[in-house]
């Protein structure tokens, strides 16, 4: 009987300790990043795997790709289609279906020319599946400034959070 009472008093004390823990966290600063106002730091995005992109060979929109089809064959999800060009090794078409991609890096690691890599586009938005079927050659030209970039730069007041 006495033991039960002592046990229960100890139990009540453990509840007070618990309350003090949550009370302390109530008063301490928040840990979350409020997305549109804050963004995560660039060092986290460095290793982020976004959709594939072609590595530029020059600033004229040329790629290093030699149309060897290694990436397409290595892909477990069949998401890459490379169409060989008429002349030379440069591809005519490099189609990439992001909806099927599992970001496993099989293509990147099997590429003998080092022509593809993962982009760090974390804020990518698509409204339909069609928009996720990417044409990587057009994307490369766009990044070289040969085609107008559709996405505006993020607002200035956005500050990075480490």
């Amino acid at each position: 009987m006495i033991k039960a009472v002592v046990d229960n008093l100890k139990g009540l004390w453990s509840l007070v300790v618990g309350l003090s823990v949550t009370g302390r966290f109530f008063l301490s600063p928040q840990k979350t990043v409020h997305f549109p106002r804050d963004v995560v730091g660039p060092e986290i995005l460095e290793s982020f795997r976004g959709p594939l992109e072609l590595v530029p060979a020059d600033d004229q929109g040329g790629s290093k790709c030699i149309s060897c089809q290694m990436c397409a064959r290595a892909c477990p999800g069949d998401c890459i289609t490379v169409v060989k060009g008429d002349a030379g090794k440069a591809p005519k078409e490099y189609k990439y279906d992001f909806t099927l991609c599992c970001l496993c890096a099989a293509c990147v690691e099997s590429c003998p020319a080092g022509a593809i890599r993962f982009s760090h586009r974390v804020y990518m938005v698509a409204r339909s599946r069609e928009e996720l079927r990417l044409d990587l050659l057009a994307d490369l030209r766009e990044r070289c400034g040969l085609e107008p970039a559709p996405a505006p730069a993020p607002a200035d007041k956005t500050k990075a959070v480490a």
């Binding site: 229960n8 100890k10 139990g11 009540l12 453990s14 509840l15 300790v17 618990g18 823990v21 949550t22």
Partner: peptide, 15 residues
């Protein structure tokens, strides 16, 4: 240590 104070030692959880 915080886990212990908040949850492990909690009498409700133990019972």
């Amino acid at each position: 240590k915080m886990y212990k104070a908040l949850v492990t030692d909690n009498v409700i959880l133990r019972r």
